[in-house]
Each structure stands twice: as structure tokens, then as C-alpha cells.
Nucleic acid binder design. Structure first.
Length: 921
RNA sequence: GGGUGUUUAGCUCAGUUGGGAGAGCGACGGCCUUACAAGCCGUAGGUCGCAGGUUCGACCCCUGCAACACCCACCA
């Protein structure tokens, strides 16, 4: 058999699977379904995707093999803002502005772009081995989903759960659109707190000092507020101050919102440009003065000199002008949270505009209850707190975006500004009895991308049609996603799905951690520490990696640093590891912590693991070659070694089932790793060699071992398939059909079930004894620097009948594993030569010193053994001598300690005797 | 300000109802032993963040503290 080479097998098998439609639901059995969190149609696969989809794929393959009617629904998201920005940038390189094209032509361009680049993410998902049902792939802007969106919008509007209104919203002045709270990211930045004096109206010599972080907004102030309890300003309440620069009188009002301790205790109130001030303004019926244009330049409602200035330019001008008037009192450094648009990165403005909103509270109520009642379970459990915290304090959701790419809002306006909602213009006219002559214009806005995403689990299955798919696969079983998506998406799916389907979108929500780089840093373009899963699968040269990480940076000056760090970390670039090793690495780090560090060192280990599995299969294959026909024979004899590995297989199988059922992918992968490496390869394959090669073994026993080799390997492959889909398929194909099912793919084989009755405790304890003997000898060899191939006499003393019986039974195996020159059973103390010793229970294992063994080294070794046991004895004695322990601890625990003490004392006695005789040389 | 999580070997992390502290990587030593040097064998290394408490017994349960991380929130 050739060497393990992922590249050669992975693409081949995926294609085969897809051609044969193996990803389709079987149509029989209990349904199991998962809807993919739709990736951006024009996006590429990042490490977070690779992680998430690897987890889901293992789950899907596991359930499919377990006989479930399994659907992993594929689809992509139109990603309004992200995609529009991307295409806008593309056009900019050709010197084209969206406004040059106009709406329709621009949207056509986006569709073109989607057709052209939309295949990337799908290709990458295939490379990852994701067993998605491609045939029913959906797109959030396709006809069916658009229909679902209109249906939901109209019905919510009819119920008064969608409304239009002028509100203060988050405004992105570069994209010129509103954003929801969740699309705004606040980060602490160094800023200033300016203190200004506002002179009292009619008393220009008296001032009131206000503190602000945003001086330019003072042009829109409509009041100054103080705390009603604040004695300093009590007399000013109800009076007026003259707003400088604007020269408008504004009132001094009292409101508990004002914190007396902060700043000067006086707050300028700008209702049109601050969310708090907006609320204060409402309470006091203050006028709202909007001073900004859509692009955050100052509008005509400010004094002439500031008109048209950018907000930051205006800030400098206002500060300078107030200073010139002697009204600038002081400037403090001040750290504050600055809100920025998640996509554009620019500072977002609270901005007064007409928008559409979803009234969230009524929808949230049943959604909260569904989780409280356990209809939906969060895993790990405590992540439901994030959900509850968000839902119990939910605010209305601004769903309109001033973009061109997205679901256009199904509302039409007449020339008087009245609007009419309907599934179509015809319906809107009909519903409102409008004359056909009335001129209507459709609302130019589109819906927040998350609005269509919220309908994902059911719209992809055909809703509003009551399809068979919807009946079969909804509710879906589990949603696998990250923390930050809980509010953004999970909560909205739950609300919308309960509302329109009357059932939960999924029964479980598995929340996984965030994959970071090896240092725990979030992977990002700007940090230049991102790893592309494709580069790990296919490999990449250092120069290409550097080029990739330093191109298109928002801050080009970072390029040098990124290049340096990259060259240091990957001096040889990244070699091609293949998908299976990447996946296995991802499972192994999937513990239930918040951040998961991806370290290239680990993938190397798991690549080696795959290689080992490959070589083990090659060993099995060469040992059964020529014996294929007898592999199904019943005329066989199983040795203890065979029984033991079969036991191990059962235990691991049970452990993996438990792990998968509790979403512990890390424990599942580890159990598999340990079985394959530590038991199957390190012990079983080694022990099978003497059985197969010795004249002492009967043919029936050899047949038994060949059969166990083949069957165990075959089971391991099925067990491992959900995690390592490609290598397992490749190796499984090479298993003779006398051992495996004659099916065409491992994908559709039954997943192994554990069978308690196949656990053979006698064989287990025998093999355990055998391992101890072998380990004892290896330890002496290792410590005494005796070459593993140097044959030495080995003696046994003080063993019981069982030891003796086992020695005889396993002579052949022992000869192979410990390479004795001779094996002697000593019957009397007097026969004991001076020797290095190991203990196996009460039995002493001796390697005579005759020139081989260094006295001091052996003394050191014995001291170590003695010391270890003495410490243990101390602890154990302490317990036994504690009457409280003996009285109160369960009898079996006490007995266990007593037995242990006895063993320790016996061992110590022997070791000390041994030490004395060695020391006497 | 509120919330959640983390703290176990040099590094990254397991530790499933409280009953003898584990793995991988790294380190060190020895081996080309006929599946595998992408390998094999062996060894060292930890007052389980700190301080209390409950218990016969605590990495595990309770209280307090500290450090770090993340999420949410309107302190101008």
C-alpha cells in the first residue's frame, strides 16, 4: 500500500459521495435535521466556519450512520451590508460609483458578482468534507424565501407588530443607512471631556458649566439639565441660558438622569443626537433639532459658518470658537465608549429618521417561555443566561436599511406620504381600495439581513407552503453556533418561528467557543494572524502567506509587522496537512471553554495520528492477504489478546456515544485517539505478531487473530468516520467483504454500537498483567541502559499459581515482547541472584546484574520506587488510623484502603530487601 | 455598572454524581525492534490561583478575595 497522502484521497471521495447522492436524507427512520447557519454567499471559509461545520458534520454523519433520516440543509445568505460594500469596492477599482449605475443596474452587478464568486464557499465546504444536502440548497434572496419574507412582513404589520416611525436610530454616515444595536460595536477609546460655560440669559456675567465629549452637538442643544436634588443649581432650574454660537435661549431643566458626581453636574441636552438626551427630551417635551445631514456633515439648522462642515471639523471649530469667546473652561482626558459600525468601522451617529421597526416584546414573551419550559435547551446550560438577559430587556428592532441589496420592503407610498403594505402592489391597492390611477412608489429601503435569516429553519423547507419537508424536518434538532450569535440570530429565529410555525426552530442550541490563534488572540485580517483552513489543507508557501496577510489591509502600515511575525512563525510556510487532520484537531480543541486556541503544533500530531491509522491498516491488510476467504469462518479460536481488544473496542464505543450525545467532541476524539494509538497499535498489533508468526499457535487461533485484526480495524474505521471521513472511507474500501458489509460506502454503514456482553473481564485482567510484566522489563532496560535488542535472562519469584499459569500461557508473547535470553521461575529465595527488580503484584521480576547493571543506577531506581510507595503508605495509614474515617466512610472504601495498605507494605518489604542486597555488593 | 467564564505539569487543556492528580506538545535518556523515524521504548515535572468553611475525606460543594478573558449596558 502506498503512503498516506490526504490530497490523493480527499477530493476523490467527496466527488464520489456527491455523485451518488449519499448526502440526501434516506427517507426512512426517525428524522434528524440541522440547518446550516448560512454563510455569506460571497464569503470565504474562515477558521470559525471550519470549526463549526466540522462539528456539525461529525454530528450529521454520526446520526446518518445511526439510521436517522438525516438532513443537513444547505444555504447561503445575501448579507446585505457586507455584500453591498464588497461590490461597491469592486466597482471603485474600475472608477465606478453605485450612483453612476443607479439602483437596478447596481443590483444586477451584485447578482453578477454573486454568480461569479458565490461558488467559493460551496467549494470550500466540500473540501472540508461537509455532508450537506446540496440538492435543496437555498439562498436568502431566492424566490421562495422572498415570498416567506413578504408573508411574514405583511402579517406582522397587519397585527401591529411592525410599524413605521421617526425615531433616533444608529446611523452609519458612510454607508448612509440605519443599523440595529447589534450591528454597532462600542470600544473604549481615548477622548476628551470639554467643559464649557453657557451664560445665563439676561445675566451674561453668570455662567453654568456643562461637560461634554461631543462639542459639535451643542449646536443642537435644546436644554441644560441638572439633578433636582443638586443644591448647587437649585436656583437655576426654570431659568434660561443663552446657547453660545447659536444664540438661542434654552431652558435649565431638572431630571434625575443627571449624575451629580460626574463632570460639572450639568448636562447639555441634545435630543436629536444622543439616546439619553432623546429620552430626557421626550420627558420634558423639548424640541428636537437635527443638525446633521446623512453623511454627518452639518446641515442648515446651524449658524452659517458651520454649514457643510464634517462633524469632526465642526468639533474643532466649535471648541476654537468657544475658546475665543472665553467660554472654554477646561479640557480633561477621558476614556469613553465610541460606537462604530461593525462593517464600515466608522463612528456611528444617533440620527433621527423614518424607519420600520418590529415590536419585539410581544414576540419575545413566548420565546422566553420556550426556553424556560425546556422546549429549547442550551448546551452548555449556562449560555441560556445570555439569551434571557437579552430577551427580557429586548428593545424594538429597527429592520429597515437604506441599501439597495436585500429584500425590498413591501410598502408603497402615495404622493401625500401615506403608505400601504401588501404582498404586492396589487394587493396593497386592493386591500386599501385605491384607485388604479393613484400614483404609488415603493419604499426604497430593504430589510435587515437578519430579518430573512430569522425565518431560516422553516423558509428553507418551503414555508409558507405546508410541504412534506417542513412536516418531516421541522423543528430541526440542533443549532450549532457561537456566543455572539445568540442575540443576533438565535433569539430572532425563536421568536419568528414560534410566531409563524407554532413550534420551536430547534430543540437544542449548542454554543461553542471562539477559535483563536495559538496566543489566544482573535484571528483577524487587521491583526494579520488569521489562518485560512484551505491553507492548512492544501499548504501554502511563506511568500504567498505573507502576501495574503498583508494585502488589502485597512492600515497598510501594519504590513511590516505582520510580515515579520509571519516569517518568524512559519519560516517554511504551511505544509499541506489535509482535511482529516485539520478536522481532528478542531474536535480535539472543542472543549466547553470560551476561547479555543488553534495551535499548528497540534495538527502535526493529528496528521501523524492519521498516518498511524493508515499504517496500521496496511499492517492488517498485509497480514490478512491471502486469507480473505477464511475471515468469515466460525471455526476459530480467540485468544485473550483478541478478547481484550474486543473489550477495549466496546468501552471506547460507549464512551464515544456518550460524548456525541452530550456534544463533547473533544472527549469523543480523545477516546478514539487513545483506542487507536495506545491500545490497538501499541499493544494489539504488537501482540498479534507473535500469535501469527509462532509455530506454537494453532491455525484456528491464527484465524481468530486475523479475523479480530480485520474486524476491529473495520469497526474502528466506522467509529472514526464522522471525524475522519476521508481516510476512513479509503481504508474501509480495502477491507475484504468477508469482514465488512458489501455496501459501496462507509458513509451509510451502521455506526458501531457497544455490546456489554463482549467485554471479557478475565481476558482484560490477564492482558493487564501481561502489560505490567512487559512494562516492568522495559523500565529496567530503559533505566539501566540495556538495549532493547540485547537478550537478558529474566527471572520470576514469589508469584502465585495464577502468575505461574499466566507465565506459561503467555510465554510466546513474552518472548517476543521482552526478548529474554531465558525465562526462569525461581522457587526459593536462595536461588535469587543479585538483580534489578520490578514488582507485578506480589511477583518479583528480576533481571540479574551480571555485568549489565550499574549498582548506583539500580539503587537510585529502587529509591525512587520506595519513595513513591512510602508517600502513598503515609497517606493510606493516616486514613486507616483515623477512627472517624473507619467509622463513617462506606465499608467498601475502607476495605479498599486496607487492601491497598497491605499491598504497599508487602511491596515496600520486598523493595527494601532488594535495596539491601544491592547495597551490599 | 451588571453578567458569564477561566485559573490543574514549562505550554495547551481533560478530569461525568466528593474516595489513589491525567493527556498532548515540549524537555531529557535510549533505540533504524520485519505497519509506521510523520516511528518505538523509557524518565522527569504539579502545596490543582489565594484564604476560609462544610465533610471521616475537597481539584470537585459553600463563602470571600485576586488576576485574566469575554458579553451586555445610556454615565454626559
Amino acid at each position: 500500500m502506498s503512503k498516506y497522502s490526504p490530497r490523493e484521497i480527499e477530493q476523490f471521495w467527496y466527488q464520489k459521495w456527491e455523485e451518488n447522492n449519499y448526502f440526501a436524507p434516506s427517507g426512512s427512520g426517525e428524522p434528524f435535521s440541522i440547518a446550516i447557519p448560512p454563510p455569506n454567499v460571497t464569503g470565504t471559509l474562515h477558521m470559525g466556519h471550519a470549526f463549526q461545520h466540522s462539528l456539525v458534520d461529525s454530528l450529521v454523519r454520526y446520526k446518518r450512520m445511526s439510521g436517522k433520516n438525516t438532513l443537513w440543509q444547505m444555504g447561503t445568505d445575501h448579507a446585505g451590508i457586507a455584500t453591498q460594500m464588497l461590490v461597491t469596492e469592486q466597482l471603485a477599482t474600475q472608477g465606478i460609483k453605485p450612483s453612476d449605475l443607479g439602483r437596478e443596474a447596481f443590483v444586477d452587478k451584485v447578482w453578477e458578482w454573486k454568480e461569479q464568486s458565490g461558488g467559493t464557499i460551496s467549494r470550500q465546504l466540500r473540501r472540508l468534507g461537509a455532508s450537506l444536502h446540496w440538492e435543496t440548497e437555498r439562498f436568502t434572496l431566492d424566490a421562495g424565501l422572498s415570498r416567506a419574507v413578504r408573508e411574514v412582513f405583511v402579517r406582522l404589520h397587519e397585527e401591529g407588530l411592525i410599524y413605521r416611525g421617526k425615531r433616533l436610530v444608529n446611523w452609519d454616515p458612510v454607508l448612509k443607512t440605519s443599523l440595529s444595536d447589534l450591528e454597532v460595536e462600542s470600544e473604549e477609546e481615548q477622548g476628551h471631556l470639554w467643559h464649557f460655560r453657557y451664560p445665563l440669559a439676561g445675566d451674561p456675567d453668570r455662567f453654568i458649566s456643562v461637560a461634554t465629549t461631543r462639542p459639535e452637538t451643542m449646536l443642537g442643544d435644546t436644554a441644560v439639565a441638572v439633578n433636582p436634588e443638586d443644591k448647587r443649581y437649585k436656583d437655576l432650574i426654570g431659568k434660561e441660558v443663552m446657547l453660545p454660537l447659536a444664540d438661542r435661549p434654552i431652558p435649565v431643566i431638572a431630571d434625575h438622569y443627571v449624575n451629580m458626581e460626574f463632570g460639572t453636574g450639568c448636562v447639555k441636552i441634545t435630543p436629536a443626537h444622543d439616546f439619553n438626551d432623546y429620552d430626557v427630551g421626550k420627558r420634558h417635551e423639548l424640541p428636537l433639532i437635527n443638525i446633521l445631514n446623512e453623511d454627518a456633515t452639518l446641515n442648515d439648522d446651524v449658524p452659517g459658518k458651520y454649514r457643510g462642515m464634517d462633524r469632526f471639523e465642526a468639533r474643532r471649530a466649535v471648541v476654537a470658537d468657544l475658546d475665543a469667546l472665553g467660554l472654554l473652561e477646561q479640557i480633561d482626558d477621558h476614556v469613553m465608549a465610541v460606537p462604530r459600525g461593525e462593517r464600515s468601522g466608522v463612528v456611528v451617529e444617533p440620527y433621527l429618521s423614518d424607519q420600520w421597526f418590529v415590536k419585539a416584546a410581544p414576540l419575545a414573551e413566548p420565546a422566553i417561555k420556550a426556553v424556560e419550559d425546556g422546549d429549547i435547551e442550551f448546551v452548555p446550560r449556562n449560555t441560556e443566561n445570555i439569551y434571557f438577559a437579552w430577551m427580557r430587556n429586548i428593545q424594538d428592532w429597527c429592520i429597515s436599511r437604506q441599501l439597495w441589496w436585500g429584500h425590498r420592503i413591501p410598502a408603497w407610498y402615495d404622493t401625500d406620504g401615506n403608505f400601504y403594505v401588501g404582498r404586492s402592489e396589487e394587493e396593497a391597492r386592493q386591500k386599501h381600495g385605491l384607485s388604479p390611477d393613484l400614483k404609488l412608489e415603493r419604499d426604497p429601503d430593504v430589510l435587515d439581513t437578519w430579518f430573512s435569516s430569522a425565518l431560516w429553519t422553516f423558509s428553507t423547507l418551503g414555508w409558507p407552503e405546508q410541504t412534506k419537508e417542513l412536516a418531516t424536518f421541522h423543528s430541526t434538532n440542533v443549532m450549532v453556533t457561537a456566543h455572539e450569535i445568540i442575540s443576533l440570530w438565535v433569539s430572532r429565529m425563536i421568536m419568528m418561528t414560534l410566531k409563524f410555525v407554532g413550534e420551536v426552530p430547534f430543540r437544542k442550541v449548542y454554543i461553542h467557543g471562539l477559535v483563536t490563534d495559538a496566543n489566544g488572540q482573535k484571528m483577524s485580517k487587521s491583526r494579520g494572524n488569521g489562518l485560512d483552513p484551505m491553507d492548512i489543507i492544501d499548504g501554502i508557501s511563506l511568500d504567498d502567506l505573507v502576501a495574503k496577510r498583508t494585502s488589502n489591509l485597512m492600515q497598510p502600515r501594519m504590513a511590516k509587522r505582520i510580515e515579520k511575525a509571519t516569517r518568524k512563525e512559519y519560516p517554511e510556510g504551511i505544509m499541506a496537512y489535509g482535511t482529516d487532520p485539520l478536522r481532528f484537531t478542531l474536535y480535539s480543541i472543542a472543549s466547553q471553554t470560551r476561547t479555543l486556541r488553534f495551535d499548528m503544533k497540534r495538527i502535526e500530531g493529528y496528521r501523524n495520528f492519521c498516518n498511524k491509522l493508515w499504517n496500521a491498516a496496511s499492517f492488517v491488510s498485509s497480514n490478512i492477504a491471502g486469507h480473505e476467504s477464511e475471515l468469515a469462518d466460525t471455526d476459530i479460536e480467540l485468544s485473550d489478546v483478541d478478547h481484550w481488544i474486543i473489550s477495549e473496542l466496546q468501552r471506547t464505543t460507549a464512551a464515544i456515544h456518550l460524548a456525541m450525545d452530550t456534544y463533547r467532541f473533544d472527549l469523543a476524539s480523545r477516546a478514539l485517539y487513545e483506542l487507536v494509538r495506545d491500545e490497538f497499535c501499541d499493544w494489539y498489533l504488537e501482540l498479534s505478531k507473535p500469535i501469527l508468526n509462532s509455530d506454537q499457535s494453532t491455525d484456528a487461533r491464527k484465524r481468530g487473530t486475523r479475523q479480530t485484526l480485520a474486524r476491529t480495524l473495520e469497526s474502528i474505521l466506522r467509529l472514526a468516520h464522522p471525524f475522519l471521513p476521508f481516510i476512513t472511507e479509503q481504508l474501509w474500501q480495502q477491507i475484504p467483504t468477508t469482514v465488512r458489509d458489501s455496501g459501496d460506502t462507509i458513509m451509510l454503514q451502521p455506526y458501531p454500537a457497544d455490546d456489554e456482553s463482549l467485554i471479557n473481564r478475565d481476558a482484560d485482567s490477564n492482558i493487564n498483567w501481561l502489560k505490567q510484566v512487559v512494562t516492568g522489563v522495559r523500565n529496567i532496560r530503559g533505566e539501566m541502559d540495556i538495549s532493547p535488542v540485547k537478550e537478558v535472562p529474566i527471572m520470576f519469584f514469589n508469584g502465585n499459581d495464577q502468575d505461574r499459569e499466566r507465565l506459561e500461557r503467555y510465554t510466546t508473547l513474552l518472548r517476543f515482547l521482552i526478548r529474554p535470553e531465558s525465562m526462569t521461575w525461581l522457587s526459593s529465595e536462595d536461588d535469587k541472584p543479585l538483580a534489578a527488580t520490578a514488582l507485578v503484584g506480589d511477583m518479583e521480576l528480576l533481571v540479574p546484574m551480571g555485568g549489565l547493571i550499574d549498582k548506583d543506577a539500580e539503587l537510585a531506581r529502587l529509591d525512587k520506587e520506595i519513595d513513591r510507595r512510602e508517600k502513598d503508605r503515609g497517606r493510606t495509614e493516616g486514613k486507616i488510623n483515623n477512627p472517624d474515617f473507619v467509622d463513617r466512610a462506606p465499608a467498601d472504601v475502607v476495605q479498599k484502603e486496607r487492601d491497598k495498605l497491605q499491598e504497599l507494605e508487602s511491596a515496600l518489604r520486598k523493595l527494601n530487601e532488594q535495596r539491601a542486597s544491592v547495597a551490599a555488593i
